[in-house]
Simulated scan of single mutants.
Amino acid sequence: MSTATTTASTTTTGATVEFRGLRRAFGPTTALDGLDLTINPGELLALLGPSGCGKTTALRILAGFETHDSGQVLVDGQDITQVPAHRRDAGMVFQSYSLFPHLTAADNVAFGLRMRGTGKAERRNRAQELLELVGLPQHAGRYPHQLSGGQQQRIALARALALQPRVLLLDEPLSALDAKVRLNLRDEIRRLQQELGITTLFVTHDQEEALSMADRVAVLRAGRLEQCAAPAELYSRPATAFVAEFVGTMSRIPCTRAGSSVELLGRTFPVDGELPADGELDVLVRPENVGLVSNDAGAAVVVGASFLGSATRITVRLSDGTEIKADLPTEAAAGLPVGGNADVTLPDRPVLVDRRTA
């Protein structure tokens, strides 16, 4: 995609979006259970979570495609509950592209302008500007079936931007694309979003997409907000065990209580956050924080190795059957063959503790 210079007519100003106590149920199923969330002007916020967590429902309510049972949706302080979808000043990009097959790329981009009664010459100029912005000016006369999936999604993005919306809504727009195209397009979407300064809500179930693209990531679970934070904070300081295990990889290691601390692997560790009041406990550890030292008398047995390039993920098993993953430099991992023994080490810092799962 080209890095075409954005003209003044393409630049937009982002709005503040607020969900206040948002609730929505579909029969006995609660999709949103009191969602409170603010998206700052010009921010790209990703809604992340498993299927059924309520992320798409929240986006569709903001777009005006769904109604909420209670609560408020505000854009720049105005409650838009009674504002119809076509007047909400929001552009939307769907997973399935949703281009009109009988219209050229340029006519697809200009469709919303035509519906607004914009003159033909202005529509043509605006469409050309946006096609240049998304790197496809030479495809103006092509029809959707003559475009690749990535090109179709760029056209869909240009169409969503044509009306200069204050809010851009992205509903898993990359999930139908192959891995290489998805990687390139997510970088370009992020570049455009920052260039335009448009407030963007991005729904995805792909944690890598969320962490690489968003200013902040809001993790939902069963209609409730678990945590909303910058990607680095979300990954390194998860507020709950659910966030810790949903975002990135975690190993669970059984531990025992030692007053306000816990004991595991022959050592005592302080606890990060609250220690559950009862029940058996696990410590949650990311693979990059696990050290392995080859030792013929070590308590852990190497049971697997996955080459990841500069790093190799080693899986070891303790005598109680617990499996722990460790990411080591590939050169160091070569000294830990499958079947060999090792000692497991953890850094000297507080650990995240959760009740043991069944």
Rank of each mutant, 00 (worst) to 15 (best):
G64C: 07
S98C: 13
R123A: 10
V134L: 09
F94T: 08
R126D: 07
A105C: 13
V75D: 01
A105Q: 13
L47G: 04
T81K: 14
A46S: 15
L113N: 05
G119P: 04
L99C: 07
V134W: 08
A63W: 01
E132S: 14
D89W: 02
R124H: 12
H86Y: 14
I61D: 00
H68L: 13
G54P: 04
L74A: 03
V83H: 01
F111D: 10
A105L: 11
G112D: 12
Y97E: 07
D107N: 15
R116Y: 04
T67E: 14
E66D: 14
G112R: 12
V75W: 04
T104W: 10
L113H: 06
L113M: 14
A140R: 11
T67K: 14
S70K: 03
H102S: 15
R126V: 02
G112K: 12
G77K: 04
G117Q: 01
A127P: 05
T118K: 08
G49S: 02
S98L: 12
F94M: 08
F111L: 15
R114E: 15
Q95E: 14
T104C: 11
P137E: 11
G64R: 03
A140T: 09
P50C: 01
T57A: 07
P50L: 12
P101T: 07
T104H: 10
L59T: 07
V93A: 09
F100T: 08
A85S: 11
L74Q: 02
V134E: 12
T56P: 05
D69I: 02
I80Q: 05
L131D: 08
G54D: 03
F65G: 09
Q95D: 09
G91D: 05
R124N: 08
A106D: 15
P101F: 05
V93K: 06
N125L: 14
R114N: 11
G119A: 15
A90P: 03
E132C: 07
R87P: 00
Q95L: 09
G71R: 00
R116C: 04
I61W: 00
R123E: 11
L99P: 11
L131S: 10
N125Q: 15
P137Y: 10
G71H: 01
L113T: 06
I61T: 06
R60Q: 06
Q78K: 14
G77N: 05
R87Y: 00
A58Q: 00
Q82K: 13
V134Q: 10
E132W: 06
P137M: 11
M115C: 14
V83P: 00
G54E: 02
D107C: 10
H86W: 10
F65A: 11
R87Q: 14
V134M: 09
